[in-house]
């Protein structure tokens, strides 16, 4: 009984955001004190499909940015993690990788802003990408560090004695062995970029309008329906990732 109550409470707690956001997205002229919208309209959704409100462009931009960050950070992290294991003092390099945890993304963004401006990257997708990589690359390096154990080296050496060139050993042995961890890292770094608002907002100076930036703008304009649609769009891809691969979502640094 107690167990069922607890389960029901948690379901309610976690389902309520989706229900309320859904109602806000399709409710029309929903003002205090009405508990439910007086009328429903698919206008915000139609606008989304027609591309009139820029949400579709924001979705595309967010997808592109987060995918680019995920791929670059995962590939880079794989290579850097390998170099860290072979370094003279791997502990120091691991400590260095924890640095981004110390700085809140928005603080990091305002600190590097003067240099981003000097590199003529301010307000560009490239500038935001660089900022996000500053967070995602060390994170990926830490995650992938656990792959480069003694055993990975032994596998690589064995592949070499069986006749593999270094490239073949990488493609046919190391990458397949690392595949599950690489998948997790891709998901994690994708989400890191996908969820980010503070850093993107500062470095984009209003020009790179990703979905989170749009949610914030619509909230500022008190446009609850569009803010809700943008929110639901933000939640959808991670929800699909969750259904596809639950374990990749739990972040354990």
């Amino acid at each position: 009984m107690r167990s069922k109550l607890l389960t029901a409470f948690l379901i309610l707690l976690f389902a309520l955001p989706f229900a309320l956001l859904g109602l806000l997205a399709v409710g029309e002229g929903w003002r205090f004190p009405a508990a439910l919208p007086p009328a429903y309209s698919l206008e915000p959704l139609r606008g989304l499909v027609a591309g009139g409100n820029g949400l579709l462009a924001g979705l595309g931009k967010s997808l592109l940015l987060a995918s680019a960050v995920a791929v670059l950070a995962t590939v880079g992290g794989f290579v850097v993690a390998r170099a860290v294991v072979g370094a003279r003092r791997p502990g120091r390099w691991t400590a260095l990788s924890y640095l981004p945890y110390a700085l809140p993304p928005v603080l990091l963004a305002v600190l590097i802003q003067p240099f981003i401006i000097r590199m003529h990257l301010s307000g560009s997708v490239g500038g935001v990408l660089l900022g996000l990589l500053l967070l995602a690359l060390p994170f990926a390096t830490l995650l992938l560090g656990s792959f480069w154990s003694q055993q990975a080296t032994e596998y690589e050496q064995l592949a070499r004695t069986l006749g593999c060139t270094p490239g073949q050993a990488l493609r046919r042995v190391l990458l397949p062995l690392a595949a599950p961890l690489l998948r997790t890292t891709l998901v994690q770094t994708f989400l890191l970029a996908w969820f980010d608002f503070g850093l993107t907002n500062v470095l984009s100076v209003g020009k790179v309008r990703t979905l989170t930036v749009q949610v914030f703008t619509y909230v500022g304009e008190a446009n609850a329906p569009l803010a809700a649609v943008a929110s639901l769009l933000l939640v959808l891809p991670p929800l699909l990732l969750l259904l596809a691969n639950k374990s990749a979502l739990l972040r354990k640094p």
Binding site: L10, A228, L250
Partner: peptide, 20 residues
């Protein structure tokens, strides 16, 4: 079920709680 909140961006949670 416990994984569900992991798909929510902080900004969305803030917006939702404001609306709630």
């Amino acid at each position: 079920l416990l994984y569900v909140p992991l798909v929510l961006p902080a900004l969305v949670v803030a917006f939702y709680l404001f609306q709630l």
